[in-house]
Amino acid sequence: MPVVDAWRQHPTLRRSNHEMFASLRRWTGQGLATPRSRPSDRSTNRATSLLMSGALDFPELTIVCGHIGYPWPTEMIAVADKHAGVHIDTSAYTARRYPPKLVEYLRGRGRRKVLVGSNYPMITPGQTLEHLPDLHLDEEVTVLFLSADARSVFRLDDHS
């Protein structure tokens, strides 16, 4: 399954959000989109509405939102809760910098919605996970967070 960075394909918003997600579906089949916020999308309403409209119109797409949804991690949790195909990754953050609401979400209802990410080479995997024990995750959540969720989302165990 190809991974597509939505903003590298459409570096401006000259095309509508709907067209962007439609073209992602054409490129990937039931693939993966990784939309990121652009400077023109800095208002909460604009950024979350772009993501939500794509998730609503194209529920077959898997969407992984990086950098914990910064600067709106609380809104990102709400979007991931509402849409089965929307996931959050923790790239660009070390475990000790995760917002408390994200850690709470990861421990509970978001245990299958949050994927670990580093930001290599700026943040190494070792730095990313150095303070993982401080999050007090149970064994199941730790396995899901560190590998099982990513294997599922990226279909890494699918050998067909």
Rank of each mutant, 00 (worst) to 15 (best):
121 P>M: 10
124 T>D: 04
63 I>K: 01
77 I>W: 05
66 G>F: 15
71 P>R: 08
105 Y>C: 00
62 T>K: 11
50 L>A: 02
111 R>E: 09
105 Y>H: 06
62 T>E: 07
113 K>N: 04
71 P>A: 09
123 I>A: 10
80 A>Y: 07
132 L>P: 08
128 T>Q: 13
73 P>G: 06
109 R>V: 06
133 P>Q: 07
61 L>V: 04
90 T>H: 06
115 L>F: 03
60 E>C: 03
70 Y>E: 12
50 L>Q: 10
126 G>W: 06
125 P>R: 08
70 Y>A: 13
125 P>K: 10
79 V>K: 07
85 G>D: 07
117 G>H: 11
121 P>N: 10
114 V>Y: 01
52 M>N: 07
123 I>E: 11
116 V>F: 13
65 C>Q: 11
119 N>F: 13
110 G>I: 01
48 T>N: 02
131 H>S: 11
78 A>W: 05
129 L>P: 08
115 L>D: 04
48 T>H: 10
128 T>L: 02
52 M>P: 00
111 R>F: 04
120 Y>I: 12
128 T>F: 00
53 S>M: 13
94 T>I: 14
66 G>S: 14
49 S>P: 00
129 L>E: 06
89 D>W: 09
118 S>L: 08
62 T>R: 14
132 L>E: 04
72 W>C: 00
128 T>P: 00
58 F>S: 00
80 A>W: 05
44 T>S: 08
105 Y>W: 10
123 I>S: 08
101 K>D: 13
51 L>Y: 01
107 R>N: 02
50 L>N: 09
50 L>W: 05
65 C>H: 10
59 P>D: 07
107 R>T: 02
87 H>K: 07
104 E>Y: 01
69 G>C: 03
60 E>W: 01
84 A>Q: 14
79 V>T: 14
89 D>C: 13
100 P>N: 06
